[in-house]
Amino acid sequence: MRVLIVEDETRIAHNVATALREGSGFAVDCSDNGTDGATLAGQGHYDLLLLDLMLPGMDGLGIVRQVRARGDATPILVLTARSERANVIQLLNAGADDYLTKPFDLGELLARVKALIRRGKGVAHPVVAIGRLSINSIEQTVRCDGQLIDLSPTEYRIFEYLIFRPRAIVSKRELLEHLYDYRWEHHSNVIEAHVSNLRKKLRVMGEEATVETLRGRGYRLYAPEKEA
């Protein structure tokens, strides 16, 4: 998952970014002004936008409006130091999904970010089950019949991304865009290596569900239909 933080107070942006990377294994990009933030948000790589309300350049409300005007449904969480009701109502009506007032609790922020991403993918519960597999997006674990499958953080992130888009073909490019932030050098074969490892680990558990490779098109989570 990849999150964009637009916050002019760089220390807050840094802290939140670090927490999201460490705590949830997300890829995070930061922007310290509204104009750059709006440009980045326009690229559509993000699974969540975290916006400050008062920003130099373009304010949070402006970005929300721009994103929604484009028909982009990416979840948006707004941080605000002003908790005036009118502002909050205006924000939510403009298309923001949630808000937090400063000073916020970092744990709460992380929980809300995860919940919003989940909701954005159409999933309500943090534990998703497919066949014998169950994926806990809070603990970041994958279990097969209750037995833990030991996945590396990147393997988990790839699997989590695919779980949230069942039966859809996800291109390698999309995976790269959503799993890595701009600090990483993009090597497309990195994904292939991780997918290959992931497949091996699933096979060891005797799991039928696996990640299919559709040559030239991308990857798909394959889960055999349960027999009635």
Binding site: R11, A81, R82, P103, F104, D105
Partner: peptide, 25 residues
């Protein structure tokens, strides 16, 4: 008052998030 509150809240947010980040793990 609004501006002062905004400034102070932001400063506190920096402090709080820094400390919570340290205790995250």
């Amino acid at each position: 008052t609004g501006d002062a509150a905004h400034e102070l809240k932001t400063s506190i947010a920096v402090l709080k998030s820094s400390l919570q980040l340290l205790s995250l793990r």
